[in-house]
C-alpha cells in the first residue's frame, strides 16, 4: 500500500482575535498547526499502513516554514515528507492548490503507484472542502468524502467499503482503489508517537520540490494566476446601528426583570404566547 496524505499548515484560528478598538486582526502569537481535520486523515492512513504494510507519504504545499508541519507528521510515523514550495504557488485558491497537489501526487506515483490519497474534510482557514474532490477529479480517483469509517479494505482485490456521512444518515459505499478519502472529524485520535519516530523526525531531511520537481507544467494554472476566486475585502462586521433595547435591571429583583423581559418578548412576537403554551401542552 502506498498512501499519500495531503496536509496543510494553518494558523490556529481559535487564537485569532479582532482588536475591539481598531477592528483589525491581531496576528501576534497566533501559532501555526497542522490543520486539525488533516490529523484524522493522517491517523487513518498510518493505521492502514500498520495493518497492511507499505508507505505513507505526506505532502504539503506552502511556504518554506511549512516544513515544521511535515516534520511533525514524520514524528507521528509518516515514512516520507515532501514540501511543495515555489513562488509560483503563492496565492493559490483551492482550485489552483488541487492542481499543484495532484501534479505532485502524479509525480510521486511515477516512482511508486499510489493506492490511496487522504485529506481532511476541509481546512480550518478556508473551509472550502474543495481540494480533496479537486484532486480526485484531476487524478481520476474514486472519491469518498466525509468518511466516518473504513469498513472493509482488501488491497489485493483493490476493494474498499466505507461509511460516508450524509444528511440524516450514513451511506455505505463500495468502490475500488485507487481512491481519495476525506476523513470526517472525530473518527480517530492521532497517536502519541514513540521515541524512535521522534528521533527520526528530528533528524529527517525534508524533501523540497519546486514547480518543476512537482511536475507543474502549466504555471498559469497555479498561484494567483490559476485562481478564479479573488478576495476583494476582509472586514469586521459593522455593529448594527440600533443597539439592543435595554431591559431595566438596576434595583430590580430577578423576578421583576424576568416578568419585564417576558412582556417585551410577547409584545414583539405575540404569536409566541399561544405557540409556547401549545407546545407545553403537547409535550
Amino acid at each position: 500500500m502506498h498512501i499519500v496524505v495531503c496536509i496543510k499548515q494553518v494558523p490556529d484560528s481559535a487564537q485569532i482575535r479582532i482588536h475591539p478598538v481598531t477592528n483589525t486582526i491581531m496576528r501576534q502569537g497566533v501559532p501555526t498547526i497542522i490543520n486539525p481535520f488533516d490529523l484524522f486523515a493522517l491517523e487513518e492512513a498510518l493505521a492502514l499502513r500498520d495493518r497492511f504494510g507499505g508507505t505513507v507519504t505526506v505532502i504539503t504545499m506552502g511556504p518554506p516554514m511549512a516544513d515544521a508541519a511535515l516534520r511533525k507528521a514524520l514524528s507521528f510515523g509518516a515514512d516520507r515528507a515532501i514540501l511543495l514550495t515555489d513562488r509560483l504557488f503563492a496565492g493559490s485558491d483551492t482550485l489552483a492548490t488541487s492542481y499543484v497537489l495532484s501534479s505532485a501526487i502524479a509525480r510521486i506515483g511515477q516512482e511508486t503507484p499510489v493506492d490511496m490519497v487522504f485529506t481532511g474534510k476541509q481546512t480550518i482557514d478556508g473551509d472550502t472542502a474543495q481540494v480533496g474532490p479537486g484532486i480526485a477529479v484531476r487524478l481520476g480517483l474514486n472519491q469518498l468524502t466525509y468518511v466516518e469509517r473504513i469498513v472493509e479494505l482488501d488491497p489485493s482485490l483493490r476493494r474498499i467499503v466505507v461509511h460516508r456521512r450524509a444528511e440524516g444518515g450514513v451511506q455505505v459505499l463500495e468502490t475500488r482503489l485507487p481512491c481519495l478519502i476525506t476523513m470526517l472529524e472525530g473518527t480517530n485520535h492521532i497517536r502519541f508517537a514513540g521515541m524512535d519516530d521522534m528521533f527520526r523526525a528530528a533528524r529527517a531531511e525534508i524533501a523540497t520540490w519546486g514547480a518543476a520537481e512537482a511536475g507543474v507544467d502549466e504555471p498559469g494554472r497555479c498561484g494567483l494566476r490559476g485562481s478564479p476566486t479573488v478576495v476583494k475585502k476582509v472586514f469586521a462586521p459593522t455593529p448594527r446601528t440600533e443597539k439592543a433595547t435595554p431591559i431595566e435591571t438596576s434595583g430590580k429583583s430577578p423576578q421583576e426583570i424576568a416578568d419585564a423581559a417576558i412582556d417585551v418578548i410577547f409584545a414583539a412576537k405575540p404569536s409566541l404566547r399561544s405557540e409556547m403554551a401549545g407546545r407545553r401542552q403537547a409535550g
Partner: peptide, 12 residues
C-alpha cells in the same frame, strides 16, 4: 474567515 472572527467578500 479566520475562524469566524472576520468576514471576507470573494468574487470569481
Amino acid at each position: 474567515t479566520f475562524g469566524g472572527s472576520l468576514l471576507c467578500t470573494i468574487h470569481t
